[in-house]
Design a protein around this nucleic acid. Structure first.
Lengths: 244, 244
DNA sequence: GCAAAAGTGTTCGGAGTACACCCATGT
DNA sequence: ACATGGGTGTACTCCGAACACTTTTGC
Protein backbone atom coordinates (compact mmCIF):
# COMPACT_ATOMS: atom_id res chain seq x y z
CA UNK A 1 0.00 0.00 0.00
CA UNK A 2 1.30 3.37 -0.99
CA UNK A 3 1.38 5.89 1.82
CA UNK A 4 2.66 9.40 1.51
CA UNK A 5 5.85 10.13 3.32
CA UNK A 6 5.18 13.68 4.41
CA UNK A 7 8.66 14.82 5.33
CA UNK A 8 10.57 14.02 2.14
CA UNK A 9 9.88 15.56 -1.21
CA UNK A 10 11.55 15.65 -4.57
CA UNK A 11 11.81 18.91 -6.49
CA UNK A 12 12.66 18.88 -10.18
CA UNK A 13 14.24 21.70 -12.08
CA UNK A 14 13.08 20.81 -15.57
CA UNK A 15 15.27 22.51 -18.15
CA UNK A 16 14.12 22.81 -21.73
CA UNK A 17 15.98 24.25 -24.68
CA UNK A 18 14.07 25.71 -27.63
CA UNK A 19 17.08 26.73 -29.82
CA UNK A 20 16.76 30.25 -28.46
CA UNK A 21 16.77 30.15 -24.69
CA UNK A 22 17.25 27.86 -21.74
CA UNK A 23 13.85 27.53 -20.09
CA UNK A 24 12.55 26.08 -16.86
CA UNK A 25 9.16 24.50 -16.41
CA UNK A 26 7.24 26.34 -13.69
CA UNK A 27 3.91 25.66 -12.06
CA UNK A 28 1.39 28.21 -10.98
CA UNK A 29 0.66 28.38 -7.23
CA UNK A 30 -2.53 30.24 -6.45
CA UNK A 31 -3.93 30.40 -2.95
CA UNK A 32 -7.64 31.15 -2.78
CA UNK A 33 -9.51 32.03 0.39
CA UNK A 34 -11.71 29.06 1.28
CA UNK A 35 -14.75 31.20 2.01
CA UNK A 36 -14.65 34.12 -0.37
CA UNK A 37 -12.76 32.39 -3.16
CA UNK A 38 -10.62 35.50 -3.48
CA UNK A 39 -7.03 35.09 -4.64
CA UNK A 40 -4.76 35.67 -1.64
CA UNK A 41 -1.59 35.40 -3.68
CA UNK A 42 -0.27 33.85 -6.84
CA UNK A 43 3.25 32.93 -7.76
CA UNK A 44 5.31 30.19 -9.37
CA UNK A 45 7.07 27.08 -8.12
CA UNK A 46 9.35 24.45 -9.48
CA UNK A 47 7.75 21.09 -9.99
CA UNK A 48 7.87 18.90 -6.94
CA UNK A 49 5.97 16.31 -5.02
CA UNK A 50 5.89 13.96 -2.10
CA UNK A 51 7.43 10.56 -2.10
CA UNK A 52 5.50 7.38 -1.42
CA UNK A 53 6.65 5.11 1.35
CA UNK A 54 7.60 2.25 -0.93
CA UNK A 55 9.13 4.41 -3.64
CA UNK A 56 12.72 5.43 -4.20
CA UNK A 57 13.39 9.11 -4.63
CA UNK A 58 14.54 8.52 -8.21
CA UNK A 59 11.20 6.87 -8.93
CA UNK A 60 9.35 9.80 -7.41
CA UNK A 61 11.29 12.28 -9.52
CA UNK A 62 10.53 10.28 -12.65
CA UNK A 63 6.88 10.14 -11.69
CA UNK A 64 6.74 13.93 -11.29
CA UNK A 65 8.34 14.34 -14.66
CA UNK A 66 5.98 11.86 -16.27
CA UNK A 67 2.90 13.47 -14.75
CA UNK A 68 3.89 16.83 -16.18
CA UNK A 69 5.28 15.94 -19.56
CA UNK A 70 4.02 12.47 -20.39
CA UNK A 71 7.64 11.57 -21.14
CA UNK A 72 9.69 8.71 -19.80
CA UNK A 73 13.40 7.97 -19.93
CA UNK A 74 14.25 11.62 -19.55
CA UNK A 75 17.70 12.61 -18.36
CA UNK A 76 17.33 13.19 -14.64
CA UNK A 77 19.97 13.75 -12.03
CA UNK A 78 19.93 14.24 -8.30
CA UNK A 79 22.15 17.23 -7.56
CA UNK A 80 21.60 18.51 -4.04
CA UNK A 81 19.39 18.19 -1.01
CA UNK A 82 17.76 21.16 0.66
CA UNK A 83 16.92 20.87 4.32
CA UNK A 84 17.50 24.26 5.90
CA UNK A 85 15.18 24.60 8.91
CA UNK A 86 13.85 27.90 7.55
CA UNK A 87 13.38 26.89 3.94
CA UNK A 88 9.57 26.93 4.04
CA UNK A 89 9.09 29.74 6.50
CA UNK A 90 8.17 32.73 4.30
CA UNK A 91 4.63 33.95 5.18
CA UNK A 92 3.08 32.83 1.89
CA UNK A 93 4.74 29.45 2.19
CA UNK A 94 3.36 28.94 5.71
CA UNK A 95 -0.14 29.89 4.50
CA UNK A 96 0.15 27.51 1.60
CA UNK A 97 1.29 24.61 3.76
CA UNK A 98 -1.46 25.22 6.32
CA UNK A 99 -4.06 25.37 3.59
CA UNK A 100 -2.66 22.13 2.24
CA UNK A 101 -3.10 20.47 5.64
CA UNK A 102 0.60 20.32 6.42
CA UNK A 103 2.45 21.51 9.49
CA UNK A 104 4.56 24.51 8.45
CA UNK A 105 6.83 24.08 11.47
CA UNK A 106 7.89 20.63 10.45
CA UNK A 107 11.10 20.39 8.51
CA UNK A 108 10.72 19.09 5.00
CA UNK A 109 13.74 17.64 3.24
CA UNK A 110 13.65 18.29 -0.43
CA UNK A 111 15.86 16.31 -2.74
CA UNK A 112 16.73 18.37 -5.78
CA UNK A 113 16.83 16.90 -9.29
CA UNK A 114 17.35 18.47 -12.63
CA UNK A 115 15.94 17.15 -15.88
CA UNK A 116 16.98 17.96 -19.43
CA UNK A 117 14.79 17.88 -22.50
CA UNK A 118 14.00 19.63 -25.75
CA UNK A 119 10.96 21.83 -25.27
CA UNK A 120 9.51 20.67 -28.57
CA UNK A 121 9.37 17.08 -27.33
CA UNK A 122 6.74 18.12 -24.77
CA UNK A 123 3.12 19.04 -25.11
CA UNK A 124 2.11 20.81 -21.93
CA UNK A 125 -1.17 19.80 -20.45
CA UNK A 126 -1.88 19.32 -16.84
CA UNK A 127 -4.92 18.70 -14.80
CA UNK A 128 -5.86 21.77 -12.89
CA UNK A 129 -2.69 23.79 -12.56
CA UNK A 130 -0.99 25.94 -15.11
CA UNK A 131 2.41 24.91 -16.28
CA UNK A 132 4.66 26.98 -18.48
CA UNK A 133 8.17 27.39 -19.80
CA UNK A 134 9.99 30.46 -18.52
CA UNK A 135 13.43 31.51 -19.79
CA UNK A 136 15.92 31.32 -16.93
CA UNK A 137 16.80 34.99 -17.26
CA UNK A 138 13.20 36.06 -16.86
CA UNK A 139 12.41 34.17 -13.70
CA UNK A 140 11.38 36.37 -10.78
CA UNK A 141 10.84 35.43 -7.15
CA UNK A 142 9.66 31.87 -6.82
CA UNK A 143 7.83 30.12 -4.01
CA UNK A 144 9.63 28.46 -1.09
CA UNK A 145 13.41 28.31 -1.55
CA UNK A 146 13.02 27.54 -5.23
CA UNK A 147 15.20 30.39 -6.43
CA UNK A 148 18.04 28.84 -4.45
CA UNK A 149 17.31 25.38 -5.83
CA UNK A 150 17.24 26.72 -9.37
CA UNK A 151 20.48 28.60 -8.87
CA UNK A 152 22.25 25.47 -7.63
CA UNK A 153 20.80 23.42 -10.48
CA UNK A 154 22.16 25.91 -12.98
CA UNK A 155 25.61 25.74 -11.41
CA UNK A 156 25.55 21.96 -11.61
CA UNK A 157 24.33 22.00 -15.18
CA UNK A 158 27.05 24.44 -16.23
CA UNK A 159 29.75 22.42 -14.55
CA UNK A 160 28.60 19.09 -15.83
CA UNK A 161 27.97 20.15 -19.39
CA UNK A 162 31.62 21.12 -19.73
CA UNK A 163 32.85 17.62 -19.11
CA UNK A 164 30.07 15.24 -19.94
CA UNK A 165 27.92 14.75 -23.00
CA UNK A 166 24.64 15.86 -21.50
CA UNK A 167 24.04 18.77 -23.86
CA UNK A 168 22.46 16.42 -26.38
CA UNK A 169 19.69 15.71 -23.89
CA UNK A 170 18.47 19.26 -24.46
CA UNK A 171 18.17 18.78 -28.21
CA UNK A 172 15.88 16.65 -30.34
CA UNK A 173 17.31 13.36 -31.55
CA UNK A 174 18.54 14.93 -34.77
CA UNK A 175 20.06 18.37 -34.63
CA UNK A 176 22.37 20.69 -36.55
CA UNK A 177 25.82 21.81 -35.48
CA UNK A 178 24.62 25.39 -35.22
CA UNK A 179 21.94 24.32 -32.78
CA UNK A 180 24.53 22.47 -30.74
CA UNK A 181 26.82 25.48 -30.76
CA UNK A 182 24.05 27.83 -29.71
CA UNK A 183 23.14 25.50 -26.86
CA UNK A 184 26.64 25.64 -25.41
CA UNK A 185 26.89 29.36 -25.97
CA UNK A 186 23.69 30.05 -24.09
CA UNK A 187 24.32 27.72 -21.20
CA UNK A 188 27.94 28.74 -20.75
CA UNK A 189 27.23 32.38 -21.58
CA UNK A 190 30.01 32.64 -24.11
CA UNK A 191 30.60 32.59 -27.84
CA UNK A 192 32.50 30.15 -29.97
CA UNK A 193 34.06 30.61 -33.37
CA UNK A 194 32.04 28.57 -35.85
CA UNK A 195 35.02 27.02 -37.62
CA UNK A 196 36.85 26.15 -34.45
CA UNK A 197 33.71 24.71 -32.91
CA UNK A 198 33.18 22.49 -35.93
CA UNK A 199 36.78 21.35 -35.94
CA UNK A 200 36.41 20.40 -32.31
CA UNK A 201 33.22 18.42 -32.65
CA UNK A 202 34.55 16.76 -35.79
CA UNK A 203 37.01 15.01 -33.49
CA UNK A 204 34.17 13.58 -31.40
CA UNK A 205 33.48 10.26 -33.03
CA UNK A 206 30.22 9.83 -31.14
CA UNK A 207 28.67 12.76 -32.99
CA UNK A 208 27.33 10.99 -36.04
CA UNK A 209 26.68 12.95 -39.25
CA UNK A 210 23.50 11.79 -40.96
CA UNK A 211 22.65 11.75 -44.67
CA UNK A 212 19.80 14.04 -43.91
CA UNK A 213 19.25 17.77 -44.04
CA UNK A 214 17.02 20.37 -42.53
CA UNK A 215 13.90 21.18 -44.55
CA UNK A 216 11.73 24.24 -44.75
CA UNK A 217 14.39 26.79 -43.79
CA UNK A 218 14.96 29.92 -45.83
CA UNK A 219 18.67 29.37 -46.21
CA UNK A 220 21.09 26.62 -47.08
CA UNK A 221 19.78 23.61 -45.15
CA UNK A 222 22.10 22.23 -42.53
CA UNK A 223 23.19 18.65 -42.16
CA UNK A 224 21.69 16.77 -39.22
CA UNK A 225 23.69 14.94 -36.56
CA UNK A 226 22.97 12.42 -33.85
CA UNK A 227 24.69 11.64 -30.59
CA UNK A 228 25.67 8.02 -30.17
CA UNK A 229 25.99 7.05 -26.54
CA UNK A 230 27.26 3.68 -27.64
CA UNK A 231 30.22 5.16 -29.47
CA UNK A 232 30.76 7.58 -26.61
CA UNK A 233 31.06 4.81 -24.05
CA UNK A 234 33.66 3.11 -26.24
CA UNK A 235 35.76 6.17 -26.91
CA UNK A 236 35.38 7.87 -23.56
CA UNK A 237 39.09 8.29 -23.26
CA UNK A 238 38.94 10.94 -25.91
CA UNK A 239 37.84 13.54 -23.57
CA UNK A 240 34.83 15.68 -23.71
CA UNK A 241 35.30 19.25 -22.73
CA UNK A 242 33.85 22.59 -23.47
CA UNK A 243 35.96 24.94 -21.49
CA UNK A 244 35.11 28.59 -21.67
CA UNK B 1 15.90 23.80 22.60
CA UNK B 2 17.71 21.20 20.60
CA UNK B 3 15.63 18.20 19.68
CA UNK B 4 16.86 15.33 17.62
CA UNK B 5 15.30 15.00 14.23
CA UNK B 6 15.14 11.24 13.96
CA UNK B 7 14.52 10.83 10.27
CA UNK B 8 17.40 12.81 8.78
CA UNK B 9 21.04 12.01 9.27
CA UNK B 10 24.29 13.17 7.80
CA UNK B 11 26.97 10.67 6.85
CA UNK B 12 30.52 11.85 6.24
CA UNK B 13 33.06 10.06 4.12
CA UNK B 14 36.22 11.48 5.66
CA UNK B 15 39.12 11.10 3.25
CA UNK B 16 42.68 11.43 4.50
CA UNK B 17 45.89 11.28 2.50
CA UNK B 18 49.13 10.16 4.16
CA UNK B 19 51.49 10.52 1.14
CA UNK B 20 51.07 6.81 0.49
CA UNK B 21 47.39 5.98 0.30
CA UNK B 22 43.96 7.49 0.23
CA UNK B 23 42.30 6.53 3.50
CA UNK B 24 38.83 6.74 4.93
CA UNK B 25 38.02 7.26 8.59
CA UNK B 26 35.88 4.38 9.83
CA UNK B 27 34.16 3.78 13.14
CA UNK B 28 33.79 0.48 14.89
CA UNK B 29 30.22 -0.78 15.32
CA UNK B 30 29.94 -3.52 17.92
CA UNK B 31 26.60 -4.87 19.05
CA UNK B 32 26.67 -6.56 22.46
CA UNK B 33 23.88 -8.64 23.85
CA UNK B 34 22.26 -6.64 26.66
CA UNK B 35 22.13 -9.57 29.05
CA UNK B 36 25.18 -11.69 28.37
CA UNK B 37 27.40 -8.90 27.11
CA UNK B 38 28.48 -11.19 24.28
CA UNK B 39 29.46 -9.64 20.99
CA UNK B 40 26.70 -10.34 18.49
CA UNK B 41 28.56 -8.79 15.60
CA UNK B 42 31.23 -6.26 14.88
CA UNK B 43 31.86 -4.28 11.76
CA UNK B 44 32.70 -0.79 10.51
CA UNK B 45 30.70 2.26 9.51
CA UNK B 46 31.31 5.63 8.02
CA UNK B 47 30.97 8.49 10.44
CA UNK B 48 27.44 9.80 10.69
CA UNK B 49 24.97 11.27 13.07
CA UNK B 50 21.55 12.72 13.60
CA UNK B 51 20.65 16.29 12.95
CA UNK B 52 19.19 18.63 15.54
CA UNK B 53 15.92 20.35 14.80
CA UNK B 54 17.41 23.82 14.74
CA UNK B 55 20.55 22.85 12.87
CA UNK B 56 21.32 22.93 9.18
CA UNK B 57 22.67 19.75 7.66
CA UNK B 58 25.97 21.49 6.89
CA UNK B 59 26.28 22.38 10.56
CA UNK B 60 25.57 18.80 11.54
CA UNK B 61 28.23 17.49 9.14
CA UNK B 62 30.74 19.95 10.54
CA UNK B 63 29.81 18.92 14.07
CA UNK B 64 30.38 15.25 13.25
CA UNK B 65 33.75 16.11 11.79
CA UNK B 66 34.71 18.24 14.77
CA UNK B 67 33.67 15.58 17.27
CA UNK B 68 35.90 13.04 15.57
CA UNK B 69 38.93 15.06 14.63
CA UNK B 70 38.86 18.21 16.73
CA UNK B 71 39.32 20.14 13.50
CA UNK B 72 37.26 22.99 12.13
CA UNK B 73 37.15 24.64 8.72
CA UNK B 74 37.71 21.35 6.99
CA UNK B 75 36.78 21.00 3.34
CA UNK B 76 33.34 19.44 3.36
CA UNK B 77 30.93 18.92 0.53
CA UNK B 78 27.46 17.53 0.26
CA UNK B 79 27.48 15.12 -2.67
CA UNK B 80 24.40 12.92 -2.65
CA UNK B 81 21.42 11.89 -0.59
CA UNK B 82 20.58 8.30 0.15
CA UNK B 83 16.98 7.42 0.85
CA UNK B 84 16.31 4.03 -0.64
CA UNK B 85 13.51 2.37 1.34
CA UNK B 86 15.68 -0.71 1.89
CA UNK B 87 18.91 1.02 2.77
CA UNK B 88 18.86 -0.01 6.44
CA UNK B 89 17.22 -3.37 6.08
CA UNK B 90 20.10 -5.84 6.37
CA UNK B 91 19.59 -8.12 9.42
CA UNK B 92 22.48 -6.64 11.39
CA UNK B 93 21.32 -3.13 10.59
CA UNK B 94 17.83 -3.86 11.87
CA UNK B 95 19.25 -5.33 15.06
CA UNK B 96 21.44 -2.33 15.54
CA UNK B 97 18.62 0.16 15.04
CA UNK B 98 16.31 -1.75 17.39
CA UNK B 99 19.01 -1.89 20.04
CA UNK B 100 19.46 1.83 19.56
CA UNK B 101 15.78 2.43 20.19
CA UNK B 102 14.93 3.31 16.62
CA UNK B 103 12.26 1.90 14.36
CA UNK B 104 14.02 -0.10 11.63
CA UNK B 105 10.97 0.13 9.39
CA UNK B 106 11.06 3.89 9.27
CA UNK B 107 12.85 5.42 6.33
CA UNK B 108 15.93 7.40 7.25
CA UNK B 109 17.22 9.94 4.77
CA UNK B 110 20.95 10.21 4.89
CA UNK B 111 22.65 13.19 3.38
CA UNK B 112 26.12 12.23 2.19
CA UNK B 113 29.12 14.51 2.64
CA UNK B 114 32.75 14.02 1.93
CA UNK B 115 35.56 15.71 3.81
CA UNK B 116 39.19 16.08 2.78
CA UNK B 117 42.15 16.39 5.10
CA UNK B 118 45.75 15.38 5.62
CA UNK B 119 45.89 12.42 8.00
CA UNK B 120 48.79 13.96 9.85
CA UNK B 121 46.67 16.96 10.82
CA UNK B 122 44.49 14.70 12.95
CA UNK B 123 45.09 13.02 16.26
CA UNK B 124 42.48 10.34 16.63
CA UNK B 125 40.81 10.10 19.96
CA UNK B 126 37.20 9.47 20.56
CA UNK B 127 35.08 8.77 23.54
CA UNK B 128 34.03 5.20 23.58
CA UNK B 129 34.20 4.01 19.99
CA UNK B 130 37.21 3.05 17.99
CA UNK B 131 38.06 5.16 15.00
CA UNK B 132 40.69 4.32 12.44
CA UNK B 133 42.04 5.17 9.01
CA UNK B 134 41.58 2.42 6.43
CA UNK B 135 43.05 2.61 2.91
CA UNK B 136 40.21 2.70 0.39
CA UNK B 137 41.45 -0.41 -1.35
CA UNK B 138 41.38 -2.43 1.86
CA UNK B 139 37.84 -1.64 2.91
CA UNK B 140 35.59 -4.67 3.18
CA UNK B 141 31.86 -4.86 3.76
CA UNK B 142 30.63 -1.91 5.77
CA UNK B 143 27.48 -1.43 7.80
CA UNK B 144 24.20 -0.15 6.31
CA UNK B 145 24.57 1.06 2.72
CA UNK B 146 27.93 2.60 3.49
CA UNK B 147 29.82 0.79 0.73
CA UNK B 148 27.49 2.45 -1.73
CA UNK B 149 27.94 5.85 -0.11
CA UNK B 150 31.70 5.46 -0.16
CA UNK B 151 31.66 4.39 -3.79
CA UNK B 152 29.65 7.45 -4.81
CA UNK B 153 31.90 9.71 -2.75
CA UNK B 154 34.94 8.35 -4.54
CA UNK B 155 33.35 8.98 -7.92
CA UNK B 156 32.57 12.56 -6.92
CA UNK B 157 36.05 13.09 -5.55
CA UNK B 158 37.66 11.76 -8.73
CA UNK B 159 35.50 13.92 -10.93
CA UNK B 160 35.89 17.05 -8.92
CA UNK B 161 39.62 16.80 -8.37
CA UNK B 162 40.17 16.89 -12.12
CA UNK B 163 38.64 20.31 -12.49
CA UNK B 164 38.86 22.06 -9.16
CA UNK B 165 41.73 22.73 -6.79
CA UNK B 166 40.58 20.49 -3.97
CA UNK B 167 43.62 18.21 -3.97
CA UNK B 168 45.46 20.64 -1.74
CA UNK B 169 42.89 19.99 0.98
CA UNK B 170 44.38 16.51 1.32
CA UNK B 171 47.88 17.82 1.94
CA UNK B 172 49.42 19.77 4.79
CA UNK B 173 49.70 23.50 4.28
CA UNK B 174 53.21 23.15 2.90
CA UNK B 175 53.96 20.29 0.57
CA UNK B 176 56.40 19.17 -2.11
CA UNK B 177 55.62 18.73 -5.78
CA UNK B 178 56.29 15.02 -5.53
CA UNK B 179 53.68 14.73 -2.81
CA UNK B 180 51.21 16.60 -4.97
CA UNK B 181 51.99 14.38 -7.93
CA UNK B 182 51.62 11.21 -5.88
CA UNK B 183 48.25 12.45 -4.60
CA UNK B 184 46.85 12.84 -8.10
CA UNK B 185 48.36 9.58 -9.24
CA UNK B 186 46.75 7.66 -6.40
CA UNK B 187 43.34 9.26 -6.62
CA UNK B 188 43.13 9.10 -10.39
CA UNK B 189 44.89 5.74 -10.56
CA UNK B 190 47.38 6.81 -13.15
CA UNK B 191 50.97 7.94 -13.52
CA UNK B 192 52.40 11.25 -14.62
CA UNK B 193 55.78 12.05 -16.04
CA UNK B 194 57.68 14.04 -13.45
CA UNK B 195 58.98 16.71 -15.83
CA UNK B 196 55.68 17.18 -17.57
CA UNK B 197 53.84 17.35 -14.28
CA UNK B 198 56.17 20.07 -13.06
CA UNK B 199 55.86 22.04 -16.26
CA UNK B 200 52.11 21.90 -15.86
CA UNK B 201 51.97 23.05 -12.27
CA UNK B 202 54.56 25.74 -12.99
CA UNK B 203 51.85 27.43 -15.06
CA UNK B 204 49.48 27.51 -12.08
CA UNK B 205 50.19 30.84 -10.50
CA UNK B 206 48.30 29.94 -7.35
CA UNK B 207 50.84 27.28 -6.49
CA UNK B 208 53.35 29.37 -4.57
CA UNK B 209 56.96 28.19 -4.24
CA UNK B 210 58.34 28.91 -0.79
CA UNK B 211 61.92 29.69 0.24
CA UNK B 212 61.81 26.66 2.39
CA UNK B 213 62.90 23.08 2.04
CA UNK B 214 62.16 19.70 3.50
CA UNK B 215 64.37 18.71 6.41
CA UNK B 216 65.43 15.36 7.77
CA UNK B 217 65.12 13.39 4.56
CA UNK B 218 67.90 11.14 3.33
CA UNK B 219 68.06 12.69 -0.10
CA UNK B 220 68.14 16.08 -1.75
CA UNK B 221 65.52 18.07 0.18
CA UNK B 222 62.57 19.21 -1.87
CA UNK B 223 61.27 22.74 -2.11
CA UNK B 224 57.98 23.36 -0.34
CA UNK B 225 54.92 24.90 -1.99
CA UNK B 226 51.65 26.40 -0.81
CA UNK B 227 48.29 26.71 -2.47
CA UNK B 228 46.92 30.25 -2.54
CA UNK B 229 43.16 30.32 -2.83
CA UNK B 230 43.33 34.07 -3.17
CA UNK B 231 45.46 33.88 -6.29
CA UNK B 232 43.31 31.04 -7.57
CA UNK B 233 40.11 33.07 -7.31
CA UNK B 234 41.75 35.86 -9.27
CA UNK B 235 43.18 33.70 -12.02
CA UNK B 236 40.38 31.16 -12.26
CA UNK B 237 40.17 31.64 -15.97
CA UNK B 238 43.42 29.82 -16.34
CA UNK B 239 41.90 26.48 -16.09
CA UNK B 240 42.58 23.75 -13.68
CA UNK B 241 42.54 20.30 -15.03
CA UNK B 242 44.15 16.99 -14.44
CA UNK B 243 42.78 14.83 -17.14
CA UNK B 244 43.93 11.26 -17.21
C1' DG C 1 18.27 38.71 -56.76
C1' DC C 2 18.34 39.07 -52.00
C1' DA C 3 18.34 37.61 -47.25
C1' DA C 4 19.86 34.13 -44.14
C1' DA C 5 22.47 30.74 -42.24
C1' DA C 6 25.70 26.73 -43.79
C1' DG C 7 30.02 25.37 -44.60
C1' DT C 8 35.07 25.54 -45.22
C1' DG C 9 41.36 26.34 -44.45
C1' DT C 10 45.49 28.52 -42.88
C1' DT C 11 48.66 30.49 -39.71
C1' DC C 12 50.58 30.93 -35.13
C1' DG C 13 51.54 30.12 -30.45
C1' DG C 14 51.15 27.22 -26.58
C1' DA C 15 50.36 22.78 -24.33
C1' DG C 16 50.83 17.68 -24.16
C1' DT C 17 54.03 13.76 -24.60
C1' DA C 18 58.11 11.14 -24.62
C1' DC C 19 62.44 10.66 -22.87
C1' DA C 20 67.74 10.52 -19.43
C1' DC C 21 70.89 12.43 -16.55
C1' DC C 22 73.09 15.15 -12.64
C1' DC C 23 72.30 17.01 -7.72
C1' DA C 24 71.96 17.41 -2.61
C1' DT C 25 71.34 15.16 1.47
C1' DG C 26 71.58 11.31 5.34
C1' DT C 27 73.68 7.28 6.69
C1' DA D 1 80.67 5.98 -1.11
C1' DC D 2 76.19 4.92 -1.86
C1' DA D 3 71.24 5.07 -1.75
C1' DT D 4 67.35 8.02 -2.31
C1' DG D 5 64.38 10.99 -4.30
C1' DG D 6 64.87 16.14 -6.29
C1' DG D 7 65.29 18.69 -10.12
C1' DT D 8 65.98 19.97 -15.05
C1' DG D 9 65.53 20.59 -21.25
C1' DT D 10 64.49 19.36 -25.99
C1' DA D 11 61.92 17.79 -30.06
C1' DC D 12 57.59 16.74 -32.00
C1' DT D 13 52.85 16.73 -32.43
C1' DC D 14 48.37 18.37 -31.66
C1' DC D 15 45.10 21.67 -30.13
C1' DG D 16 43.19 26.34 -29.47
C1' DA D 17 42.57 30.93 -31.35
C1' DA D 18 42.07 34.32 -34.82
C1' DC D 19 40.18 35.35 -39.05
C1' DA D 20 36.68 35.95 -44.38
C1' DC D 21 34.52 34.22 -48.13
C1' DT D 22 31.48 31.05 -51.02
C1' DT D 23 27.22 28.09 -51.13
C1' DT D 24 22.43 26.76 -50.96
C1' DT D 25 17.99 27.45 -50.03
C1' DG D 26 13.15 30.17 -49.57
C1' DC D 27 10.93 34.09 -50.73
Amino acid sequence: MRVLNNYISADCVIFGFDFEQLNVLLVDRTLRNDETGEVEFEDLTLTGNHIYEDETVDEAANRILYDLTGLQNIYLEQFKTFAHPDRLKKPNDRKWLLHDGRDPDKRIVSIGYFALLATQDVTLEWKGRNVKWVPVHEIGELAFDHNLILQRALIELRNKIKHEPIGFELLPEKFTLSQLQKLYEIILDTEFDKRNFRKKVARMKYLIPLDEKQTGVAHKPARLYMFSREVYEKTKKELFDFWV
